[in-house]
Design a protein around this nucleic acid. Sequence first.
DNA 1: CGTTCAGTTGACTAAGGTCAATTCCCGTGG
DNA 2: CCACGGGAATTGACCTTAGTCAACTGAACG
Lengths: 196, 196
Amino acid sequence: MDEKELLKFRTALTRFVPLNDEDWGLLSPFVTYRNLAKGEHWITEGKKEQYLGFILEGNMRHYYIRNGEEKTTYFYFENHLTGSYFSALNGAASLVTIEALTDCRLLSFPYDVLVSLYDESHAWERFGRILAEYLAMGLEERMSELLMLSPEERYVKLIEGNKKKIIERIPQHYIANYLGITPVSLSRIRKRLTSK
Amino acid sequence: MDEKELLKFRTALTRFVPLNDEDWGLLSPFVTYRNLAKGEHWITEGKKEQYLGFILEGNMRHYYIRNGEEKTTYFYFENHLTGSYFSALNGAASLVTIEALTDCRLLSFPYDVLVSLYDESHAWERFGRILAEYLAMGLEERMSELLMLSPEERYVKLIEGNKKKIIERIPQHYIANYLGITPVSLSRIRKRLTSK
DNA sequence: CGTTCAGTTGACTAAGGTCAATTCCCGTGG
DNA sequence: CCACGGGAATTGACCTTAGTCAACTGAACG
């Protein structure tokens, strides 16, 4: 296990909440490497998924399947946590699939371990609270955008906003899916916008 | 303070996490009554809001204002918590307004108190985690519905689903707003559906 | 070179938005 | 008890935008 990469992970967690050596020592023995080739699933819909991951390298796509159609809700990039968090919470089969869009390297750890840390340590419980709050704020923002903005406005916001990575690194047809429209419509929206 | 109503509140919190007398005693002294007349705001956009509420009686509407248009994201009914939770979290001015749709009676307590309980007690920290997880799961469901379903499908789901209260007790033009469409369109959707 | 897949473009359809008129419901005051 | 006023809901006519299907272009890769 590369110490630098482990430290990167620890630092990322510390963005949520301070972790002293003792807290960290409760989790670190359970952390292992995972590699995914482009196209492989990290999480598969219908399976009970037991791991959370931290992306060292690569990016991933989080989507639902409805009537055979994929609906993308999120993209993950390096230095962030990834997993079917809320499915894991209640132990149910995952409703979502998370797929590697590029070759990926992850650090992974079992969800159970995190849950048991919630019991053992107030600091980890706080971590869990702040993580859930962070995820909820992201979901609230996404939800309110879907309710308040037209597809075109959502695309403009993606270009101008703090999500440049998505524009720069994700193929256009996935972006269209993320915006809730077809690739054809996104192409037309782009045309409309450049003609202004 | 009516003991029965206080107990109702305590019981509702216990749905999230068990609270012993000591835990409960940390919060209960800070709980006070609040009454709102139909049309009054419980939370107003742009203000720093410092209270969470528990609805004893009545129902409320949670909405954003965008370009002068209201966009309803949620309805609250008796026996549930209400407040601008995520605005309160980071101490910023509220982005949302919560308005009484009927005369309402609430129990209310300061958000600061809850935050200080997170420091004082592991049990309350856990309460905070589970509350945030609960809210996040609700947001995820709402978000995925907006992404995956057409307005008509969303309306059908509202009728058939576990949200009957909304259909029964909320005026139709607010429901339309909640679905992300105009009252005119909802009326047509209803017509389409009954003619089947 | 072909094959494949992403992206663009055109023609047509479907669904929701907008504006305006009308009807329905309900509460209030004469 | 009835008449009136006002807001909610419905309906019609027309517009705008995204979806669908299909053809075409272009770049990547063997």
